[in-house]
Write a protein that binds this DNA or RNA. Structure first.
Lengths: 223, 223
DNA sequence: GACCGCATCATACGTAGGTATGATCGCGGC
DNA sequence: GCCGCGATCATACCTACGTATGATGCGGTC
C-alpha cells in the first residue's frame, strides 16, 4: 500500500537519469558527457551484472544498452528486466548488429536500436523519445497505483459488492446473489463509495474498470 | 452507420487473405504457393500503385511487402496505408535492408521484418502473428463500431445528457447545467438508455468510455 | 474480560431515478 | 395545411438509493 501519488507536488524539477550499460569505458565516458551536456543525470555500468547488482534510481529515466555485453547479452538483459518489473524504456546500441537482432529488440519493446557509430543527435532524440514514453508510463502507473491503494482498504465483502454493483446489478440483486439483505448491501456499497473516494457510480465504474474488477460480465446489451 | 457486427455469426470459416506486394514475379509465385499450401487466400500485386488502385478484400488478412518497390518505397506505402485507414498488419521483406530501415518499419508498427532469403517457416510464423494481430484489431473495431452506431442514433440533446450523466452528475445538476427541467432530463436519459441498449448506468458508463464521451472531467475524487 | 473491527439486519426517512399520461411548440416534408 | 419528430414540461406513481439509529454476533487483540 503506497501513499497517494496524486497529492505529491513536483518536488524537484530533477531531470531524468540515463542508465548507461557498455563494456567500453570510452563509450561510457562519451555518452556520459553527452547526456550531462543536456542536463541529464547518468549512471554508468560496465556489465549487466553490475546493473542488476547495483541500486537503480527510482525516478524517471531510461536505459542505453549495448547489445554485446560480457555475460548476458543485451537482449537477454532486456527480457530479464521486463520479468523483474523494471520498466525503463531501453535504447540499444550495437557495433556489429544485424536486422534480426534489431527486429527482436524492437518486438520486445525497445524504443530504438542505433548502430555504432551514431550521431549524437540521433542518440539524444532516442533518449527524448524514451523519456517521454517513461513519463507517460509513470503517470499511468501512478494513477493506477492510487486506485489500487484505495481498493486495498476495502474488506472482502466490500470488494464483492463493488464487483457486482459496477457490473450494473441493483442492490437487491446483489443481495440475493450473495445471500444478504438489501440493507446490508447498501451499507457495504456506501462504504465502497467512501473508501474509493468517489461520489458517483459513474466514477466508481471507471475506477473498477482501471482495476479490472467487475463480477458479472453478462451482456445486458440488447439493441 | 453500420449494422451491428455482434449479431453476425461466423458465416464462413473463410481463411484470411495474404496480400503480397513484390516486383519480382518469382517471389510472388513462390509466396503464393507457400500461403496457399497452408490454406490461406492470396492477392498478388507487382507495385504499390497496383495495390492502391486495385480493390482490397475487406475480410481478415495481412500484407507481405517488399521494401524496395517500383515507385513508392515499402516504408512510404506503409505510412500511406496508415493514413488511408487501411490497417492490415504489415510484414516487410528485403534483399538489401539495413538496421535503420528495419527499425523505422518496426516503429511504424510493422509485425516483422524479414531479410531475403528467409525460411518459409519464418514467413509463416510472421503471417500467423500478423493475422492474430489483425483478428484482435478487428474484434475491437467491431465492438467499437457497434457502440458508435448506437451513439449515432442519439439526438444532440440526448448526447449532451449522456455526456453529463456518465460524468456522474445527477439529473437535477444536468438540468440546471443546460437549462432544462429535471423531468426533461429524465426523459432524455431514458431515451439514451434505450437507444444505447443498456439497462444499467454502469454499462452506459463503459460504452461512454469506449466512445470517449464524458463532459465534466472534474475530479470528484477526495480521499 | 474488555475492546475493536467487521458483518449482519431492522426501521425509518429523505432523495434520486424511471416511466406513463398528456399536453404544447417548432420545424421540415409531402 | 397536415403530419411526424424532437423537444419541452407537468402531474403522478412506483422503485431504487442512501443514510441515520440501534442492535446482535463473531473473531481477534490487548
Amino acid at each position: 500500500m503506497t501513499r497517494p501519488n496524486q497529492a505529491q507536488p513536483p518536488a524537484q524539477p530533477s531531470s531524468a537519469t540515463v542508465i548507461i550499460v557498455d563494456d567500453d569505458a570510452g563509450i561510457r565516458a562519451s555518452l556520459d558527457s553527452l547526456f550531462r551536456s543536456v542536463g541529464l543525470e547518468t549512471r554508468l555500468f560496465g556489465s549487466p551484472a553490475e546493473l542488476l547488482g547495483g541500486s537503480l534510481p527510482d525516478g524517471p529515466g531510461c536505459i542505453v544498452l549495448d547489445v554485446r555485453l560480457p555475460g548476458v547479452s543485451g537482449l537477454d538483459l532486456q527480457s530479464q528486466l521486463v520479468r523483474q518489473g523494471i520498466s525503463y524504456p531501453i535504447i540499444f546500441m550495437t557495433g556489429h548488429g544485424d536486422i534480426p537482432m534489431s527486429v527482436r529488440a524492437m518486438k520486445a519493446g525497445a524504443v530504438d536500436f542505433l548502430s555504432k557509430p551514431f550521431r549524437d543527435q540521433d542518440m539524444l532524440d532516442a533518449v527524448t523519445a524514451a523519456l517521454e514514453r517513461d513519463a507517460q508510463h509513470r503517470a499511468e502507473a501512478a494513477t493506477k497505483e492510487d486506485i489500487r491503494a484505495q481498493y486495498e482498504t476495502l474488506t472482502a465483502r466490500e470488494r464483492e459488492v463493488m464487483g457486482h454493483v459496477t457490473a450494473g446489478l441493483m442492490n437487491k440483486q446483489v443481495a440475493a446473489l450473495i445471500g444478504l439483505s438489501e440493507i446490508t448491501v447498501k451499507i457495504h456499497r456506501g462504504n465502497v463509495m467512501r473508501k474509493m473516494g468517489v461520489r458517483s457510480l459513474a466514477d466508481l465504474v471507471r475506477k473498477a474498470e482501471a482495476l479490472g474488477v467487475s463480477q458479472t460480465r453478462r451482456s445486458t446489451d440488447q439493441t
